[in-house]
Amino acid sequence: MKKIKILLILLIFPMFLYSCNGKLPGADARKIPYDPKERVKRNLEQGKGFRLDESFGGGNKSGNFEFASSNPLWRASLDTIDFMPLALANYSGGILSTDWYSEDQNQNEAIKITIRFLSNEVRSDALAIKIFHRKCETVNNCALSEQKGKLKAELTKEILKKAAVYSKETEDKNFRPYNSGGTRDSKS
């Protein structure tokens, strides 16, 4: 038992001595560049990290991203409900949600629309639309219900119709016919 204590002391004692000298490797702030770009460059030169853009994109600064403006369902949905204030627009999460909206004549009733995108393809099952209706007798006494009728069907139809037009426009814009040599003509 006494040998174990001595062994532990001999193993722990050097750690105390090392921590007492006050110098940790890389702890001198004067030797670390202030500019983050310079720190990244220095770390990469020393082999202390890697860059994802070089690993996946060949090192160029530009990428090929599919932004919301290129998704016909997203654009059509925004255009269709543009008269309502948006509470949430999360393209990467695939959801649009409006704030409560009421016409000027009746402030006691309001609707809220939530659109979930289940697919990027323009098809009837690509959207999950929910319409909520709020009817208030007083400020603190409101009843909420989900509407499933005519408005939901009309909204779905209008979004799909606009999305089909946007999709066709994009398709026509990107179409380049083949020339007689079997290669595509260059865009002009």
Rank of each mutant, 00 (worst) to 15 (best):
Y101T: 09
V165C: 04
E154K: 09
E137L: 03
G94M: 03
T170R: 03
C20R: 07
E146L: 03
K130V: 04
K173T: 07
N141S: 15
A128S: 12
Y166I: 03
S62M: 11
R75C: 12
F83P: 00
N43E: 14
T183Q: 12
C142V: 02
F83S: 06
T98N: 02
K162F: 13
E103Y: 13
A163P: 01
P33L: 15
G181E: 15
E45P: 07
A87Q: 11
E158Y: 02
D53E: 11
K168T: 04
K135M: 02
E158A: 08
L144S: 04
A128W: 08
S77M: 02
S186I: 14
Y91K: 02
F117R: 00
F83I: 05
C136A: 08
P14T: 07
E109C: 05
K61D: 09
L52G: 05
E158L: 06
K3E: 15
I131W: 00
S69H: 14
F175G: 03
G26Q: 10
A143W: 03
P85D: 13
G49E: 03
K3I: 10
I81V: 12
N174D: 14
M15E: 06
T114W: 00
L44I: 07
G149S: 07
G59V: 04
D125K: 01
R42A: 12
I4S: 06
S186G: 14
A163N: 05
L24H: 13
Y91H: 01
N60I: 08
A153L: 10
K162P: 03
T80G: 00
G182R: 03
L24F: 14
N120Q: 02
T80R: 00
K3S: 13
V122L: 01
T138A: 13
K5S: 14
R176E: 08
A29P: 15
K150L: 09
L144Y: 15
F16V: 14
L24D: 13
H133Y: 11
M1E: 11
F175N: 11
I81T: 02
T156N: 09
S92G: 12
A76H: 07
R134P: 00
K148G: 14
N140Q: 08
L96Q: 00
K31F: 09
V139R: 05
K161Q: 07
V40R: 13
R75N: 14
M15A: 09
L17T: 13
T80H: 00
A128V: 02
I9C: 12
S70E: 15
S102T: 02
E103V: 07
P33K: 14
L155W: 02
D79G: 13
I115P: 01
G49Q: 04
E146I: 04
E38H: 10
K2Y: 10
N120S: 08
I81R: 01
K148N: 15
G49D: 07
C136Y: 04
N141A: 11
G26W: 11
T183W: 12
H133C: 01
G22M: 13
K41H: 09
S186A: 15
L17R: 09
D82W: 05
L127P: 00
G93T: 01
P85I: 03
L52Y: 05
N71M: 06
D104R: 14
S180Q: 10
S77W: 01
K173S: 08
L118A: 03
V165K: 06
N179Q: 10
D172L: 10
E137Y: 05
T170V: 02
L8D: 05
R123S: 15
V40G: 09
I6W: 07
K173A: 10
R176G: 06
Y18W: 14
F132I: 03
K157V: 02
R30V: 07
K48V: 08
